[in-house]
Every structure is written in structure tokens, then in C-alpha cells.
Design a protein around this nucleic acid. Structure first.
Length: 899
RNA sequence: GCCAGAGUGGCGGAAUUGGCAGACGCACUGGAUUCAAAAUCCAGCGAGGUUCACCCCUUGUGCGGGUUCGACUCCCGCCUCUGGCACCA
């Protein structure tokens, strides 16, 4: 660290105070004349401590905000808190503190950190989603969805921990076990609320057209994949199940390969499929099979996230009838068919689908070839794998000889004409499960009455307040269910005793509309003001982490589209431009301890092997081994020897995203204390392109700090001497140094201005400012024109201001400039001053650099060629050779081809 | 497995998208300043060679091919890493 720093500890608080007092970031959304610019940064979860990820996110946003202020726009830069969620509840359970108090304390702590970091926000607009004044409107929005038929209730499985007697979030389940007590998690069906978001699948895909070029391409790609549109056909198979209610009924399947239908030799049902129990009802092995099905359901729910598991099936004895040729195929219950995709039934074509092929080989199901590569004959018995390439139809009745791509269409038309199927499109996107069996969230505003059924809470009765006297430590399906005063209410319709919904909403609901609330955060009678929203939205620039590419950014888009369709908003995409900063990675240290599952005996790491199914065993005897992983802080580790300091235990190092659980987070506090906010902002933007992941290191931070010191010294060295000098450079000839200074200053201005257009290459803009500073130190003393020096200094300070606002504001004042740097207009580059007079052009002979010539910047190609050929070093190279061709790239390069 | 993105000095990264590879910064080395150190300033810094003083030459952007007067950049085939998705019918 530099010992003699510029006095950041004095000037930073001074200017923060000044900005606050003068309302620099206070936005009057109704102010006329200035162009609105809404810059939104993803609001944080109030964990109580800033980390480097926040620092990147908010430093990018801050630079953009300040730049647009300087462009004279009416800038809205709000900040708030995503303050509902699990950690508050965990703190309550573990430490016995009130979630509301815990949250408020964290918010206060983080707000103070953010203010000290120097980021500019309109704090008058601060909001917190856990505040009743906010969640009242989250509830109101739920009711709008409900009234529009977009919110509905159905049974869905949750992760149930039998030992904690509570519902777990997915993130609380590790390898199928409860993170707290390690008992095996069971699926349990509960009635839960859903938003019918799959109806918006196509709208979401179509909306991408508007975002093209303005959102990162990878985010659009990820969303497309998430929505997962696939085109295919619905086929209706008849059911042959004598003695059951299903006999003679139809079973619909979705397939992308209708061309293979003649090759169907079995049918796979998801274990959750409602037909399963009916079909097995009369089976001789009924009990045994149903038990196996139940096991599948359990296993599949748990293993859904795990690697490949073995494909298993149970034959039901019942059959389906092929809609084309009337042939029959047995119905199996399989662990690989998913109830939530398609219809929960998959037609199995082993000859042309690899998964079906493996399943058929395992259970001896026939394989029937219906597509062949042209000029070849496939033998079903000899096949080693499924044939999935295009080909020609065989064994397909009237469709024989047709190319299979054509047959897809023709065969679907055939079943359509017979009323046994149709063209369909399926989406992977599922409806959004919004119920959470949690306390710390917005209560779902529905009351259930025995007589009236589901009754929405009247809007006048909102908010449904969270009770503050809930004991949620003893588990149960929903903490609110234990609070009688909350649950028991009169029915709003008939007045008789009824029960409140006790689930709360997913916190993604809160964040799906917060950008609307910022426009009028204290509005008491409405969620948002449509007129102001229509004027200010879509958000001009949204800045946030790539990790929200699918969930949050899809939910916010759906909310906007729904509110548009319901007539509340004129626009249907919330974020015009999106910028995603990369993730911040850092070395994490861990210790892996292995022990025998049976006895707990310790097993050395190199005696453990991983089996194909992912389970760990001791290599010598195949006994199951469990892994106990402990994360360590850097302080606990000897990072050179990679051992734990306390006992020499070997340690693994890995580079991963900073996170609380891996203890590899770096707090920015120390950096702010040592170097000041300006250094931290500038450094984090200087290390690399902002959209790339970075491996965090503060190795280079001293370099940026040195630069700001040098900048400070350089500019302050001139302030007195130039006190009475203006920036108007007189017409006519300037001396070389003055000219060179101006040139560099205007070139840098062009470079910095360009950096504020996507994709925001701030790192090179800052490098340019470093170059400009060196130029000033080299030439300013020698320059003959004081106005040129002053102009250069003024431009340099303005260009650096979005990155290092406090220093620049101070230097701006010392240079005698008016009113505050962020209220003065962003300068316009003078193209004439930026123009180079002479340029250096490289000369190649046969593509190899042989010489360089310095020529007039306006030189034409012919003259440049002549100069190049006349050059003495070139002449040496040309001796005894014939010039075949001369390539001149205007003002850039000459290449002489010889032989 | 599929889909993205990336691979450039000891390190983070530049290169107007086909035209001087290594801007800017870190680290390192030498020098100035100092009683000495820190800080600061100046200079050097991909590798190899040479008559190491000036020049100059060869080579070099993950690997192997190709297109081109010219390739970090475009095409074909591989390798590695990061991220996303994954019994998706």
C-alpha cells in the first residue's frame, strides 16, 4: 500500500455529504424537459454483509448512472431489499431472533456499507419486500392473477423431512438428505398454488425478438433452452386392459418421432401416472408391483438431480393398440418417464431411440426396425445401438419408401384425419409453483370456507399481515398453520368460520415487479402508477448477475406480460437492455474425510473409489463410504503446503464462485479502508471485461491506487497556476506539445464515451486514462499554450469522474469549474483536435515486417506505396528480387510481394 | 451427452473484427533519490540467436491441417477449462 495517498479519507465523506444535501441522485420522475433514464441494479438479499459480487454489480451500475447524469438525463437509480426468504427464518430457528428484527438490522448494516462505498442511489425510494406496504401489493398482484384464471391450486410433491417434521426447500436437500439432520427426505403431496406460466411459453419466446442485440446472447439462449419448445405429434393409443375401467379408453402420448410409430413395441408410463394403479389393480403380483412403483416414486423424486440411474420397468400386463396398424404393445411402468413432461407416457421405439433400445434389451422386449439408411438393411437382432439418423420408412404399411422426415408430417396428417391424433407443440417450461411452507414470506391472500370454497381476500382487507407471535421452531407443514389467531377468520363471502391459506409466496414473486414499485414506492392506494410506469419503462439498463438468467428474468418478463394483457401496462417487456457481469471466483479450501457407513471407521482418501452410479465405496472390499466435507477459511490453511495449520491435515484447493457456504468470500471492507472507494470502483472495472468471470485477487489494486495518486498529484500541481486560465484554445498554430496534449485528451474522450455503449469495455477506457495521465506528465510543463493544458486537465477529470467520482469532484472544484462535475454536461470530442497529423505505417515484404515509415496522416495510397518502396531497409530486402504485387491498406499497412 | 463461452508473457488482460501481437496494470530486474529503508521517479522485461553497444535475424496467441499477399482473428479436425441444461419422449 502506498504510504502517501491523496487524502481520500477527507474528500470522500465531504462529497458524499454534498451529493446527499444537493439531491444529486434524487429523481423527480415528473420533471419535464430532461430525458428519463432508468438504470436498475439487481437489489440484494440483505445478508448483512457486502461481498465482491455486489461491488462489481454496483460499481458498473454507478459508472453508468453518473455518465448519464453528466449527459443531462433525468436519471432514476433506486435501491432496495429482497428481504423475504429462508436465511431470516434459519436465524430465527438457530438463534431465536425475530426474523423482522434480524432483517432490519442487516438492512441497516448493508445500507451503511453501500453509502460508504459511494454508490449513488435515490434512497428516498428505498423499498423492502418484507414491508407490509410492499407485500400488500404482492398480494394484490396474486389476486389479479387469480381473477384472471392464472393462479390455481393442485397437488404437488414437496421435500418432507420426517425427522425435522418440516418441508425443505430444494437447496436444503443434499444428495436426497436433509442438510440439517441427514435423514432421507421423502416426497409428500400437498395442495399448492401455481401460476399458469406455461401459457406464456410462446409469448416469452416471441418476446426475445425485441431483446435481440440488447440482451446478452447467452441469456436469450439459456431462456430458450429453459422454455424448451419442441414440435411433434399427439397420438392416441387404445387401451386393452380387460376387467379394468380403462379397457377401451385411450392413452395419449406426445412424440417428436411420429414416423417411428410402426416400431412401437412397448409403452412407458411414469410411476406417478394416474393409470398405474388402475392397470395393476387385478394383477396377480399387484402388491409386490405397487410397492415397486412406490419405491420408484420415492427414488425418482430424490434422485432427480443425481447422475444416471439404472432404467427399470414393471410390466402391467395391459396393452396399447397402435393407431396405425392395430398391433399391440405392453404397457410398462418405468422410472425414466416423467409425469411433468408431455403426458407422462412415452411410446417406446427401441430400434430408433437409444434409451428405449437399452430398456428393450434389458427386458427382452422386441425390436422392430421401421427406418433404414438408404441402400442398407438393418437387422434388429444384430444392432448394437439404436438407429437415430434419417432414413427411409420400412415395415410402415402405406408409408414404406417415404423419407422419414416426410413421413413425420404425412403420418401425423393420417392420424389427424382419423381423429386419433394431431400436430402439437410441447414446452419444457412448467407452471410456476409459488407456494412455500414458510413463515418469512408474503401470505397468500386466500380464505377457504366450507360453504363458499376458495374465497379471495377482498382487496380492501389487504395486506394480510404476517403475525409476529408465531412459534415456527417445532416444524409442521406450514409455520403459519400453528397460529390460530391467523388461521381462523370469518369467510368474506358468508361470514361463517373459515380458514386462511397458511402458505406464503416464493420470493421470486416479490422480485417480479419491484422495478414498477420504485417509480412510486410510497403510493398508498395502488401497486404502481401506470402513467408513470409507461413513461419510464421498460428499464433502460438493467445490471445484474448471470445467475438470474432463467428464473428471475423469466418471472419478471411474465409478470410484465400478464400486467400488459390485463390492461395495466402499455409495454410488455420489462428490461430494454440487460448487462450481466461475470461471477467472482476465489480459491476455496476444503477437507474431505471419508468413513465407513457401517462402523464410522476412517478411510484414507486414496482408498476410496467412485462407482458408476456415483456411490462411494472402499476399494478393498466395496463397503459403502460416506463423505464428510469441511470448508476452511484461508486463515486456517497453509496455502503453500496445502495443509491445515492446526494439524497438518491435507487440504484441497478449488476455484469457485464466492459463496458463504464455501467460506471463500472476500469482504470489500478492508479494501475500502485502505484505498478508498474510488480505488475500489476503478480497480474492479479495470481488471478485465465486466461481463467475464474473474478469479478474484487484489494483486493489481495497488497499481490502480498508484494511478489515482499520480492523477491527483498531476492535476493538483496545476490548479493554482491555471486558476485564471480558460479552456478556450485560441485559433491558429499551437506548439507541438500543446497539440499532442489536446490530441490525446480528445482521443481519450472518444474512447471513454464509446465505453459507455454496450458491451461496456471499461477496462480499456481506464487504461486510456492512464495513458493520458502519462502524456500530461510528459508534456504539460513543455506546452506553450496554458489553455490547452487547462482543457486537457478538465477533460481528463471529466472522463475519470464516472469511475472515481470523489477525487474528480474535488479536482473539478480545485480547477475552478462551476457547480459540481455531475451537473455539468458531458464534453463532446473535437474530431479535428483528436486527429493525428502523422502516422507510422508498417511495411511488410512477403508478409513479414521489415520497416516502418512515418508519413502525413492524409497520405493517399499511391504516395504511401512510393514512400514504402523508397525506404532503404525495404530496398535491401528487394535486392535481386522481382516485385509481383504491392498491397496498400489505406493508412494502415503496405505489403510488398516479391519472388 | 447436448448447448454456449473461453484458451495470448510469470500474472490480470489489449489488439479499430483479416493488417505492427503483448496497450494498460501487477510481479520481477537495474538505476536515481536516501545514512538506510519505505514511498516516489527513470529504464528494462515473450522465448531463442548474434559481432548483446547500435542494429539485426529466427520463433511465438491450446494442438494439427487449410484458405489468404497477410490469420490471435476465417474454415475443417482434435485437446483442455468454465458455465448452462440433461432420463425431455
Amino acid at each position: 500500500m502506498a504510504r502517501t495517498s491523496y487524502p481520500f479519507a477527507e474528500i470522500e465523506p465531504k462529497w458524499r455529504q454534498h451529493w446527499r444535501d444537493s439531491g444529486l441522485f434524487r429523481c423527480d420522475t415528473h420533471a419535464a424537459g430532461r430525458q428519463p433514464y432508468y438504470c436498475l441494479m439487481m437489489y440484494p438479499y440483505p445478508s448483512g454483509a457486502l461481498h465482491m459480487g455486489h461491488v462489481i454489480n454496483y460499481s458498473i451500475g454507478d459508472a453508468i448512472v453518473r455518465y448519464h447524469l453528466m449527459k443531462g438525463e433525468n436519471v432514476l437509480s433506486p435501491m432496495g431489499w429482497d428481504s423475504f426468504g429462508l436465511p431470516a427464518e434459519n436465524a430465527a430457528i438457530n438463534a431465536g431472533v425475530d426474523p423482522a428484527a434480524w432483517t432490519k438490522q442487516n438492512i441497516d448494516k448493508m445500507r451503511e456499507q453501500m453509502v460508504r462505498a459511494g454508490w449513488g442511489y435515490d434512497w428516498d425510494r428505498e423499498l423492502a419486500t418484507s414491508h407490509p406496504g410492499y407485500y400488500q401489493w404482492t398480494q394484490w398482484l396474486f389476486l389479479q392473477f387469480y381473477k384472471a384464471g392464472l393462479a390455481y391450486k393442485k397437488k404437488a410433491p414437496v421435500n418432507w423431512c420426517p425427522s425435522c417434521q418440516t418441508v425443505l426447500a430444494n437447496e436444503q436437500v443434499h444428495d436426497g438428505a436433509c442438510e440439517r439432520c441427514s435423514s432421507v427426505v421423502e416426497p409428500r403431496d400437498l395442495e399448492q398454488w401455481f401460476f399458469a406460466m406455461s401459457r406464456y411459453a410462446q409469448r416469452l419466446l416471441d418476446g426475445h425478438a425485441k431483446l435481440e442485440g440488447k440482451w446478452p446472447e447467452r441469456v436469450i439462449k439459456m431462456q430458450q433452452q429453459w422454455i424448451g419448445r419442441s414440435e411433434g405429434a399427439r397420438l392416441d393409443f387404445g387401451i386393452q386392459a380387460p376387467g379394468t375401467a380403462l379397457d377401451g379408453q385411450t392413452l395419449s402420448v406426445f412424440t417428436t418421432r411420429p414416423d417411428t410409430t410402426y416400431g412401437v413395441t412397448s409403452m412407458a408410463l411414469a410411476p406417478e401416472h394416474p393409470h398405474v394403479e388402475v392397470l395393476l389393480a387385478n394383477h396377480p403380483k399387484r402388491d409386490e408391483y405397487l410397492q415397486a412403483v412406490r419405491r420408484m416414486r420415492n427414488v425418482s423424486a430424490i434422485e432427480r438431480t443425481s447422475e444416471e440411474s439404472e432404467k427399470e420397468g414393471i410390466p402391467t400386463g395391459a396393452c396399447v393398440v397402435n393407431p396405425f396398424d392395430g398391433s399391440t404393445a405392453e404397457i410398462w411402468v418405468t422410472n425414466y418417464a416423467l409425469m411433468e413432461y408431455g403426458t407422462g407416457a412415452v411410446m417406446s421405439v427401441p430400434a430408433h431411440d437409444q434409451r428405449d433400445f437399452m430398456f428393450a434389451r434389458k427386458y427382452g422386449i422386441p425390436i422392430k426396425v421401421v427406418i433404414q439408411p438408404e441402400g442398407e438393411t438393418l437387422d434388429a437382432d444384430a444392432m448394437a445401438e439404436a438407429y437415430i439418423e434419417p432414413g427411409v420408412q420400412v415395415n410402415s404399411g402405406p408409408f414404406d419408401g417415404m423419407p422419414n422426415e416426410e413421413a413425420k408430417k404425412a403420418m401425423t396428417e393420417h392420424v389427424k384425419a382419423q381423429g386419433k391424433g394431431d400436430f402439437t407443440i410441447h414446452y419444457r417450461l412448467r407452471d410456476w409453483l409459488v407456494s412455500r411452507q414458510r413463515y418469512w414470506g408474503a401470505p397468500i391472500p386466500i380464505i377457504t370456507c366450507e360453504d363458499c370454497g376458495e374465497v379471495p381476500v377482498p382487496e380492501a382487507d389487504l395486506p394480510v399481515l404476517l403475525p409476529d407471535d408465531v412459534d415456527f421452531t417445532h416444524g409442521g407443514e406450514s409455520p403459519l398453520a400453528t397460529c390460530d389467531a391467523f388461521v381462523n377468520v370469518p369467510c368474506p363471502a358468508c361470514g361463517r368460520p373459515a380458514r386462511r391459506e397458511t402458505d406464503t409466496m416464493d420470493t421470486f414473486v416479490d422480485s417480479s415487479w419491484y422495478f414498477l414499485r420504485y417509480l412510486a414506492p410510497r403510493l398508498a392506494d395502488r401497486a404502481f402508477d401506470p402513467a408513470t410506469c409507461n413513461q419510464w419503462l421498460p428499464v433502460h439498463q438493467y445490471v445484474g448477475g448471470i445467475e438470474h438468467a432463467t428464473m428471475h428474468l423469466i418471472y419478471a418478463r411474465i409478470f410484465t406480460q400478464v400486467l400488459h394483457d390485463l390492461g395495466h401496462l402499455a409495454f410488455d417487456e420489462p428490461f430494454e437492455r440487460l448487462f450481466c457481469q461475470g461471477m467472482v471466483c476465489h480459491t476455496a479450501y476444503r477437507i474431505d474425510d471419508y468413513s465407513l457407513a457401517s462402523t464410522g471407521e476412517n478411510v484414507p482418501e486414496d482408498h476410496v473409489t467412485k462407482q458408476a452410479d456415483g456411490t462411494l465405496v472402499r476399494a478393498s472390499d466395496g463397503q459403502n463410504v460416506v463423505l464428510d466435507r469441511t470448508w476452511l477459511t484461508v486463515e486456517q490453511v497453509d496455502t503453500d503446503a496445502l495443509v491445515r495449520k492446526s494439524d497438518g491435515h491435507p487440504v484441497h484447493a478449488e476455484m469457485t464462485k464466492m459463496s458463504k457456504s464455501k467460506l471463500n468470500g472476500v469482504s470489500p471492507d478492508r479494501l475500502f479502508d485502505h484505498y478508498g472507494a474510488d480505488t475500489v470502483h476503478t480497480y474492479i472495472l479495470f481488471v478485465g471485461p465486466a461481463d467475464q468471470d474473474i478469479e478474484y485477487s487484489d494483486q493489481g489494486v495497488v497499481g490502480v491506487h498508484r494511478f489515482l495518486n499520480r492523477f491527483w498529484d498531476t492535476v493538483s500541481g496545476w490548479t493554482e497556476r491555471l486558476a485564471d486560465v480558460g479552456t478556450d484554445v485560441p485559433e491558429g498554430d499551437l506548439d507541438a506539445d500543446s497539440k499532442a496534449l489536446r490530441r490525446k485528451a480528445h482521443q481519450t474522450l472518444q474512447r471513454v464515451t464509446a465505453a459507455f455503449e454496450p458491451p461496456f469495455r471499461f477496462n480499456t477506457a481506464i487504461a486510456g486514462l492512464m495513458e493520458l495521465t502519462s502524456e500530461i506528465r510528459d508534456r504539460a510543463e513543455k506546452a506553450g499554450c496554458a489553455a490547452a493544458v487547462k482543457e486537457t486537465l478538465v477533460l481528463a477529470v471529466q472522463c475519470l469522474a464516472p469511475f472515481a467520482p470523489h477525487v474528480c469532484e474535488e479536482l473539478w472544484e480545485r480547477l475552478g469549474q462551476p457547480t459540481g462535475i455531475f451537473r455539468c454536461p458531458w464534453p463532446e470530442a473535437n474530431a479535428e483536435a483528436a486527429r493525428a497529423e502523422e502516422i507510422e505505417v508498417p511495411i511488410q515484404v512477403n508478409g513479414k515486417l521489415r520497416s516502418r515509415v512515418t508519413v502525413d496522416a492524409d497520405i493517399d495510397d499511391g504516395a504511401l506505396e512510393a514512400v514504402a518502396l523508397a525506404d532503404s531497409k525495404v530496398q535491401q530486402q528487394l535486392a535481386g528480387k522481382t516485385v509481383r504485387k504491392v498491397i496498400v491498406v489505406a493508412k494502415q499497412l503496405v505489403n510488398i510481394v516479391v519472388s
